[in-house]
């Protein structure tokens, strides 16, 4: 902190009783304290204290997981904003969507940010999966985390799909009519699943409300839960794996 323009203020804050009651370690000036910064913070402790320098290189992971998670945070923030104006009822849902587009200050910006963020999240998740596949990072000991990742992809796609109905325009209505009719074609369980999902036989107000609850509560909670396991397992399985090392003997298959 000696290099900063306000060393005294920094020192005064860090030595105050209030600050020390929240952050128990001192300045990050020793290896021990630098480790404690990570250990003692709920949000940072997901991350290891030390990582290999090469894993931070762009071409190691192309940062695709980070892109996907960043899109998710943008979606949570903009989604909460949209919820302040949106009623999941017929025909108010369509009017609210129009109001967000044409009346609310910056409404069109946040609505479009939510939409483009959703596209980016799906694209990021798919590219992340491709990257992991071609780097052979799905192999033991990471095979379970691959499965968790597939679940995360499914939850992401379901979030994308349930959000599709909410504007309650023609595209949404027919998109969900067609999609739930595809689900109905599954043997035995198909028709009851469609009935429970829509809360009826046709895409109606019940369906809008159910998709809203799935989109805003159930699926995001599921996503955050699986995401916690996913990131934790990256650490426990030995950190991110980038491109596989070339074999020492070129004759041997890696």
């Amino acid at each position: 902190m000696n290099g900063t323009p306000f060393p005294r203020i920094g020192l005064w804050v860090r030595e105050s009783a209030l600050y020390r009651s929240i952050v128990r370690h001192g300045a990050a000036d020793t290896n021990r304290n630098r480790s404690l910064v990570i250990f003692e913070n709920l949000f940072l402790h997901m991350h290891p204290v030390k990582v290999r320098e090469k894993t931070l290189k762009f071409t190691h992971t192309y940062w695709l997981g980070a892109v996907t998670i960043s899109a998710m945070f943008v979606l949570i923030a903009t989604g909460i904003l949209l919820m302040f104006y949106y009623h999941p009822s017929v025909p108010q849902a369509y009017r609210d969507m129009k109001e967000l587009k044409f009346v609310v200050d910056n409404g069109v910006f946040y609505r479009n940010l939510h939409r483009w963020g959703a596209h980016l999240m799906v694209l990021g998740a798919l590219l992340h999966m491709v990257r992991v596949f071609y780097h052979r990072a799905y192999r033991p000991p990471r095979q379970f985390n691959w499965v968790v990742g597939v679940v995360l992809l499914l939850v992401t796609l379901l979030l994308s799909y349930t959000g599709y109905l909410l504007p309650w325009d023609q595209l949404a209505f027919w998109g969900v009519s067609v999609g739930t009719n595809m689900a109905k074609e599954a043997p035995i369980l198909g028709p009851p699943i469609r009935f429970l999902l829509l809360g009826g036989n046709i895409v109606s107000e019940n369906a809008l409300l159910r998709f809203y609850v799935l989109h805003c509560v159930l699926l995001p909670v599921a996503l955050l839960g699986f995401l916690g396991v996913h990131i934790w397992r990256v650490r426990k399985d030995g950190g991110v794996q980038g491109p596989p090392e070339p074999p020492a003997d070129p004759e041997v298959e890696p």
């Binding site: 009935f195 429970l196 809360g199 009826g200 036989n201 046709i202 109606s204 107000e205 019940n206």
Partner: peptide, 12 residues
């Protein structure tokens, strides 16, 4: 819960 999720009256 499964029973609860099945609507008994439909306004279709």
């Amino acid at each position: 819960v499964l029973d609860f999720m099945e609507p008994k009256v439909l306004f279709e």
